[in-house]
């Protein structure tokens, strides 16, 4: 009962935030609605028992990546977006593409709606230690590879954003 109530509240906030991202004209409003989506997704992760994922969702996504976005929007002083030639083309090709995507998603969902599994509150809560064990034992190589990826990304960002002397 309480699980359903919480799910519907936060799902509604998620969808409203995502739609607001689509409808707002100013990039900073879009960024704020995306932060709201990320915050309510973190709460949905908590309902699914993924506490560590919920915490890093807030720390990494809402607290680091989106701060970077807001920072860049403020730095470039981005204004209201303008509609040009490309927007009409985007509408001509975009509407059928999105409609096709919606149809495909609906088809897959109807086909798989026989999944009877019910999510129970607190039904699958594992301590953070288990996540760490999995990450540093079974997924050690991917973990190291992503750390190299991050290093390359940092160097790339520094090279790209540096002013020419």
């Amino acid at each position: 009962m309480i699980h359903q109530a919480l799910f519907f509240i936060f799902a509604a906030i998620c969808v409203a935030g995502a739609l607001n991202l689509l409808l707002q004209k100013h990039p900073i409003s879009s960024a704020l609605s995306l932060i709201v989506v990320m915050g309510s997704l973190a709460l949905l992760y908590l309902l699914l028992g993924a506490q560590f994922v919920a915490a890093i969702q807030i720390i990494v996504y809402a607290g680091a990546i989106m701060v970077l976005f807001v920072f860049v929007i403020m730095l470039l002083n981005a204004g209201i977006e303008e509609h040009t030639e490309g927007s009409r083309i985007a509408v001509y090709f975009g509407v059928p593409a999105v409609a096709a995507l919606v149809g495909m998603v609906l088809y897959v969902l109807l086909k798989t709606s026989h999944i009877e599994y019910q999510v129970q509150l607190g039904g699958f809560v594992k301590p953070t230690r288990d996540v760490a064990m999995l990450l540093f034992r079974e997924y050690l190589l991917p973990f190291e590879v992503t750390s190299v990826l991050i290093l390359i990304a940092i160097m790339g960002a520094v090279v790209l954003a540096r002013r020419e002397p």
Partner: peptide, 21 residues
């Protein structure tokens, strides 16, 4: 639903930062 909205925003938005978001 969220993924579809994301795709729609990716196609319809013109601001490069919003597209990235």
């Amino acid at each position: 639903i969220l993924f579809t909205i994301g795709v729609a925003a990716f196609i319809f938005k013109r601001n490069i930062i919003t597209i990235f978001m």
